[in-house]
Simulated assay, not measured.
Amino acid sequence: MNQLKQYLDDGQCRGVVRSAGGETVVFRRRGVIDLFELSTARPDFLCGASVADKVVGRGAALLFVRGGVGRLHARIISSGALDVLRRGGVEVSFDTEVSNIINRTGTGICPVERLTACTESPDEAYLLIKNFIENQKQKL
Protein backbone atom coordinates (compact mmCIF):
# COMPACT_ATOMS: atom_id res chain seq x y z
CA MET A 1 0.00 0.00 0.00
CA ASN A 2 2.88 2.38 0.69
CA GLN A 3 3.97 2.18 -2.94
CA LEU A 4 0.45 3.12 -4.07
CA LYS A 5 0.36 6.05 -1.64
CA GLN A 6 3.67 7.22 -3.12
CA TYR A 7 1.94 7.56 -6.52
CA LEU A 8 -0.33 10.17 -4.96
CA ASP A 9 2.65 12.13 -3.65
CA ASP A 10 4.91 11.82 -6.70
CA GLY A 11 2.61 11.68 -9.69
CA GLN A 12 0.12 13.85 -11.42
CA CYS A 13 -2.64 11.41 -10.57
CA ARG A 14 -5.67 11.46 -8.36
CA GLY A 15 -5.73 7.74 -7.71
CA VAL A 16 -4.10 4.40 -8.43
CA VAL A 17 -5.40 0.83 -8.42
CA ARG A 18 -3.32 -2.33 -8.26
CA SER A 19 -5.23 -5.44 -9.27
CA ALA A 20 -4.93 -8.71 -7.38
CA GLY A 21 -2.76 -9.86 -10.31
CA GLY A 22 -0.35 -6.93 -9.89
CA GLU A 23 -1.43 -4.74 -12.82
CA THR A 24 -1.57 -1.00 -12.05
CA VAL A 25 -4.03 1.56 -13.43
CA VAL A 26 -3.66 5.27 -12.69
CA PHE A 27 -6.63 7.67 -12.46
CA ARG A 28 -5.87 11.15 -13.78
CA ARG A 29 -9.26 12.82 -14.19
CA ARG A 30 -11.22 14.38 -11.36
CA GLY A 31 -14.35 12.80 -10.03
CA VAL A 32 -15.42 9.20 -10.60
CA ILE A 33 -15.13 9.04 -14.40
CA ASP A 34 -11.91 6.96 -14.52
CA LEU A 35 -13.20 4.58 -11.85
CA PHE A 36 -16.56 4.28 -13.59
CA GLU A 37 -14.93 3.58 -16.96
CA LEU A 38 -12.58 0.97 -15.46
CA SER A 39 -15.42 -0.78 -13.65
CA THR A 40 -17.45 -0.79 -16.88
CA ALA A 41 -14.74 -1.91 -19.30
CA ARG A 42 -13.01 -4.37 -16.95
CA PRO A 43 -15.52 -5.37 -14.27
CA ASP A 44 -13.24 -8.02 -12.69
CA PHE A 45 -10.20 -5.71 -12.39
CA LEU A 46 -11.21 -4.29 -9.00
CA CYS A 47 -11.86 -7.67 -7.37
CA GLY A 48 -9.33 -7.96 -4.54
CA ALA A 49 -7.52 -4.81 -5.70
CA SER A 50 -5.67 -2.29 -3.56
CA VAL A 51 -6.45 1.40 -4.10
CA ALA A 52 -4.93 4.72 -3.08
CA ASP A 53 -7.05 7.77 -3.89
CA LYS A 54 -6.88 11.45 -3.05
CA VAL A 55 -10.62 11.95 -2.48
CA VAL A 56 -13.25 9.26 -1.90
CA GLY A 57 -16.93 10.09 -1.64
CA ARG A 58 -19.99 7.86 -1.42
CA GLY A 59 -20.24 7.35 -5.18
CA ALA A 60 -16.68 6.09 -5.51
CA ALA A 61 -17.08 3.98 -2.36
CA LEU A 62 -20.15 2.26 -3.78
CA LEU A 63 -18.28 1.57 -7.05
CA PHE A 64 -15.33 0.18 -5.09
CA VAL A 65 -17.64 -2.13 -3.11
CA ARG A 66 -19.43 -3.17 -6.31
CA GLY A 67 -16.07 -4.11 -7.82
CA GLY A 68 -14.89 -6.05 -4.78
CA VAL A 69 -11.91 -3.88 -3.79
CA GLY A 70 -9.95 -5.41 -0.92
CA ARG A 71 -8.03 -2.43 0.51
CA LEU A 72 -8.26 1.32 0.12
CA HIS A 73 -6.35 4.32 1.41
CA ALA A 74 -7.85 7.79 0.95
CA ARG A 75 -6.21 11.12 1.62
CA ILE A 76 -9.72 12.56 2.19
CA ILE A 77 -12.84 10.46 2.70
CA SER A 78 -16.44 11.39 3.46
CA SER A 79 -18.17 9.84 6.45
CA GLY A 80 -20.74 8.29 4.12
CA ALA A 81 -18.01 6.70 2.00
CA LEU A 82 -16.26 5.34 5.07
CA ASP A 83 -19.50 3.74 6.25
CA VAL A 84 -20.17 2.19 2.82
CA LEU A 85 -16.65 0.76 2.56
CA ARG A 86 -16.65 -0.69 6.07
CA ARG A 87 -20.07 -2.29 5.59
CA GLY A 88 -18.84 -3.59 2.22
CA GLY A 89 -15.92 -5.40 3.84
CA VAL A 90 -13.18 -3.16 2.43
CA GLU A 91 -10.10 -2.65 4.61
CA VAL A 92 -9.92 1.16 4.87
CA SER A 93 -7.32 3.67 6.01
CA PHE A 94 -7.42 7.44 5.54
CA ASP A 95 -5.74 10.70 6.44
CA THR A 96 -8.77 12.98 6.87
CA GLU A 97 -12.48 12.27 7.32
CA VAL A 98 -14.98 14.96 6.29
CA SER A 99 -18.75 15.03 6.58
CA ASN A 100 -19.21 15.42 2.81
CA ILE A 101 -17.10 15.89 -0.30
CA ILE A 102 -17.50 19.46 -1.57
CA ASN A 103 -18.06 20.31 -5.24
CA ARG A 104 -15.31 21.82 -7.42
CA THR A 105 -16.57 25.37 -6.97
CA GLY A 106 -16.73 25.01 -3.20
CA THR A 107 -20.39 26.01 -3.12
CA GLY A 108 -22.00 22.79 -1.95
CA ILE A 109 -21.88 19.02 -1.76
CA CYS A 110 -20.30 17.11 -4.66
CA PRO A 111 -23.06 16.13 -7.11
CA VAL A 112 -22.10 12.43 -7.08
CA GLU A 113 -22.00 12.42 -3.27
CA ARG A 114 -25.49 13.97 -3.24
CA LEU A 115 -26.74 11.67 -6.03
CA THR A 116 -25.76 8.48 -4.20
CA ALA A 117 -26.93 9.58 -0.74
CA CYS A 118 -30.31 7.96 -1.46
CA THR A 119 -29.01 4.42 -2.00
CA GLU A 120 -27.12 1.68 -0.22
CA SER A 121 -27.02 -0.52 -3.33
CA PRO A 122 -23.75 -0.54 -5.30
CA ASP A 123 -25.65 -1.66 -8.42
CA GLU A 124 -28.16 1.17 -8.11
CA ALA A 125 -25.33 3.65 -7.51
CA TYR A 126 -23.61 2.39 -10.68
CA LEU A 127 -26.74 3.13 -12.72
CA LEU A 128 -27.20 6.55 -11.10
CA ILE A 129 -23.59 7.45 -11.85
CA LYS A 130 -23.89 6.12 -15.40
CA ASN A 131 -26.89 8.37 -16.04
CA PHE A 132 -25.12 11.34 -14.43
CA ILE A 133 -22.04 10.89 -16.64
CA GLU A 134 -24.16 10.50 -19.78
CA ASN A 135 -26.06 13.70 -18.92
CA GLN A 136 -22.78 15.56 -18.35
CA LYS A 137 -21.46 14.43 -21.74
CA GLN A 138 -24.65 15.69 -23.44
CA LYS A 139 -24.11 19.13 -21.90
CA LEU A 140 -20.67 19.42 -23.54
Rank of each mutant, 00 (worst) to 15 (best):
F132H: 14
V98N: 04
L63M: 13
V16S: 04
G59M: 04
R28N: 12
L85R: 06
R114M: 05
V55A: 08
C13G: 04
G48H: 03
E97R: 12
Q138N: 15
T107N: 10
I77Q: 07
E113Y: 01
E120L: 12
P122F: 01
V51K: 06
E113Q: 01
Q3M: 12
D95S: 13
V55R: 02
R66C: 00
E97W: 00
N131E: 13
Q12S: 09
V55M: 00
T105N: 11
L127H: 05
Q3C: 01
L38E: 06
I33N: 05
R71L: 01
S99W: 01
C13F: 08
F27L: 10
A41S: 14
E37N: 14
G59V: 00
V69A: 12
D123C: 04
A52E: 03
D44E: 15
D44R: 14
P43I: 10
L4Q: 02
A52F: 11
E23G: 15
E134S: 13
S50K: 10
G57L: 04
V65T: 08
F64N: 01
V25P: 02
A20G: 08
E134W: 09
L8M: 05
C13Q: 03
L140M: 12
L8V: 09
C118A: 13
V56R: 06
Q6E: 14
D123K: 02
G70I: 02
F64W: 08
G89K: 07
S39M: 12
L115K: 04
P111F: 08
A81D: 08
L46T: 07
E124L: 11
F94C: 12
G15T: 13
S79F: 08
T24C: 10
T96G: 02
R87Y: 11
E120C: 12
T40S: 13
G70W: 02
A41D: 13
E124V: 15
C47M: 10
G106K: 06
M1E: 08
F36P: 09
G106P: 08
V51F: 02
